[in-house]
C-alpha cells in the first residue's frame, strides 16, 4: 500500500497531499500525520470521499489507513 508522509506540513497541505495520492491510488493509501489537527482534517476528507479509515499511534505520529 502506498504510504505518504505529511509530517511537518501545515494546513491544508496534509489534505492536499492525501487528495493527490488518492487520485493516483484510488484503492487506498496510508497517511502519516504528526498532529491532531491534520489527523482530524485528513480523516474528515477521507470520510467525505467515501473511504473507511483506521488509525494507529506511533510515538508522536499517527498512521491513518484509508480503504475503499
Amino acid at each position: 500500500m502506498k504510504k505518504i508522509d505529511t509530517c511537518g506540513m501545515s494546513c491544508p497541505q496534509p489534505v492536499l497531499m492525501t487528495k493527490k495520492a488518492l487520485e493516483e491510488n484510488p484503492e487506498g493509501i496510508d497517511i502519516i500525520v504528526d498532529n491532531k489537527t491534520a489527523k482530524g482534517n485528513v480523516e474528515r476528507f477521507l470520510n467525505n470521499s467515501g473511504y473507511k479509515t483506521e488509525f494507529s499511534e506511533n510515538d508522536d505520529t499517527f498512521i491513518i489507513s484509508a480503504r475503499k
Partner: peptide
Amino acid sequence: RLCMVGGTRDMILFKD
C-alpha cells in the same frame, strides 16, 4: 480550529 479563510478554501478545495 475555526478559521475565516479556511471555510471558503476547504469548500473550494475539498467540498468540505
